[in-house]
Computed example of a mutant assay.
Amino acid sequence: MNRRVFVLAALALGGCATAPRTVVGAGGAALAELETLQGARAGREALTIRVASRGCTGKADFAFHVERKGGAVTLAFGRRRLDPCRSLAGGTTELSFTWAELGVPPGARVVLLNPLAGG
């Protein structure tokens, strides 16, 4: 095998070595990809996230993962099920999760790992 073919093969296979990080959520549900959020708001009693919806998205459609290391709390949301509605109008919905539901003490400093949609 000549050097050029070896380098091309190595580059092609190197791209296959990367995969989305799998996070295991509440109840053992695997989150292959983190949900892109349209917005997030931390309140005194709850965290409210805004997500894309075709009309049937609910809290049961999401799993979350909380990790505590030292004084930091990281939080990630992933979709368990796709929205089955067939509404032509793309929209968003807000879902609120209490700090108690998330297992996060009120007032804790939280880092949200989900990407945010621009615009």
Rank of each mutant, 00 (worst) to 15 (best):
A12E: 07
G25T: 09
R109N: 07
R50Q: 07
A117C: 07
R21E: 12
L88A: 15
S53N: 11
H65D: 11
D83Y: 06
E94N: 05
G14T: 06
E101I: 09
L13S: 11
A30S: 15
Q38I: 01
T98N: 14
I49Q: 00
L82G: 12
G78K: 00
A12F: 10
E33I: 06
R54W: 10
F64V: 02
T18H: 15
R81D: 08
G25H: 08
R68A: 07
P84C: 13
E33Q: 10
P105T: 11
F62M: 15
S87K: 02
A52L: 11
R68L: 03
R41C: 07
G15C: 15
A76E: 05
T74H: 08
P106T: 00
G43H: 00
G119R: 14
L102F: 09
P20E: 05
V104R: 06
P84M: 12
T36W: 06
A9P: 00
A12W: 06
L95E: 09
L75I: 09
S53C: 12
S96T: 12
G55C: 04
G14Y: 06
E101W: 13
P106G: 00
R3E: 13
R68G: 01
T48G: 05
T74W: 09
A42K: 06
T36L: 07
L34G: 00
G119Q: 05
T36P: 10
G43Y: 00
A46S: 06
D83Q: 01
R54K: 14
G14A: 15
G28W: 01
A17I: 14
L34M: 13
A52S: 13
K59N: 01
V104G: 04
V110H: 09
C56S: 10
P115K: 06
E35H: 08
A19K: 11
T93E: 06
G27L: 12
A52P: 00
E35V: 11
R44T: 15
A29G: 02
G91H: 10
R3M: 09
G14K: 04
V66R: 11
T57N: 02
W99A: 08
A42L: 13
L75M: 12
A42V: 11
W99Q: 05
L34W: 05
V104Y: 08
G103K: 09
P115H: 06
W99D: 13
L88R: 14
N2S: 14
R44A: 13
V23W: 05
I49L: 12
C85P: 07
G43V: 01
K59H: 00
L82W: 08
G15Q: 14
T22Q: 10
A60Q: 07
A100W: 10
L13N: 11
E101K: 06
V111I: 07
A17F: 14
L47Q: 01
N2R: 10
S53F: 13
H65G: 04
G78M: 02
N114A: 11
E35F: 10
A46M: 03
T98R: 15
T57G: 00
G14V: 05
